[in-house]
Design a protein around this nucleic acid. Structure first.
Lengths: 175, 175
DNA sequence: ATGTAGTTCGCATTATTTGCAAATAAGCAT
DNA sequence: ATGCTTATTTGCAAATAATGCGAACTACAT
């Protein structure tokens, strides 16, 4: 996503208005690497602008997405997460914390896949499921991918993964 | 997923009972390559057993998932789709029809990814987004993956992809 | 045939997101 | 500054997807 200033200019060029809400959201999303959900962003925004509406957050995120300033990602079936990084990249999800990291993959074209006959690939999305080791964080950047699962049927991790990001019981009434 | 008979045996072994609902669902899921949603499976099941509850379908799918007989997949943010193929495989989604195909990838380990320091990969899921060409379906099985997008920022396809699988207005009252 | 515990089912509820209309407020012209 | 016009913001209802729960039901061992 471009800088708040540039995005602001783009907005004006398109006849859109610059509201305080939008300006705030531009700022909160710029360089945001947390892959927030609409709710999460709403909470952040509420701190600086109490009263801002969740509806507006959704609205603005949709605009930014349409303008190609941010990307959406449907990760584990929970709420959509937004990413200001629109470069071609992929993701790694920590099974424990739910944290989401950007991952660059160099050689996707070398993947040998048995695609359906006549299938034209437009883009590929890769998600690395795993966990961040708390121990000695050796500087293992750009390593070959090696999975930790039995060679045959693998279901251990997938099995009960339907768990979605836990959230408050209800919005508007945090008892 | 194993054959209905084998699954039935597994159920008995675990002290679970064999109900007509379960038997039907075992049959409908076995060798099912359509990656149905719970709703979809419910509709199929309803044809043969009117009155079966959607709740039971969800329930049974969850059981099968816990038993490692089927896999869940969160595809585009819509409803979860179920896959009786629990071998290590990936998916291809047709952007037009929404159809989902199983895809086998040989050399995932050759992917060169810049993972976060200390990230231990447990498994990788790859989704090929694209479309099935209606023209001459050349037998292009097991080909190298080549994406159709500008080398720089790619957002064309991602942008408005939040569209979920269209479904009936409401369940229970199909006017 | 009987009893018991596992199942099914319907309904309420949660969670995420979008539709809609009324109230507001940018940004331009005066 | 004032007013206008129309884009925006907001709150609420509604759509969708999935789960919790309890009452009614039934598989199946005895």
């Amino acid at each position: 996503m471009h800088s708040p200033d540039v995005v602001a200019t783009k907005y004006k060029e398109q006849g859109r208005r610059l509201t305080p809400q939008r300006k705030l959201l531009f700022t909160l999303m710029h360089n945001n690497e947390s892959h927030p959900t609409a709710e999460g962003l709403f909470e952040e925004a509420s701190k600086r602008m109490p009263g801002i509406s969740l509806r507006t957050v959704y609205q603005t995120l949709e605009e930014l997405s349409e303008m190609g300033e941010i990307q959406l990602m449907h990760c584990d079936g929970g709420a959509v997460r937004f990413d200001p990084n629109v470069d071609e990249h992929h993701h790694a999800v920590c099974a424990e914390t739910g944290e989401l990291f950007d991952v660059y993959v160099d050689n996707i074209d070398s993947l040998r896949a048995q695609l359906p006959a006549g299938f034209e690939v437009q883009n590929v999305s890769i998600v690395f499921h795993g966990r961040v080791a708390k121990s000695a964080p050796r500087t293992a950047r750009s390593a070959r991918v090696t999975t930790t699962k039995s060679p045959a049927r693998q279901q251990t991790v997938r099995a009960k993964s339907a768990k979605r990001t836990p959230r408050r019981t209800s919005r508007g009434s945090n008892t």
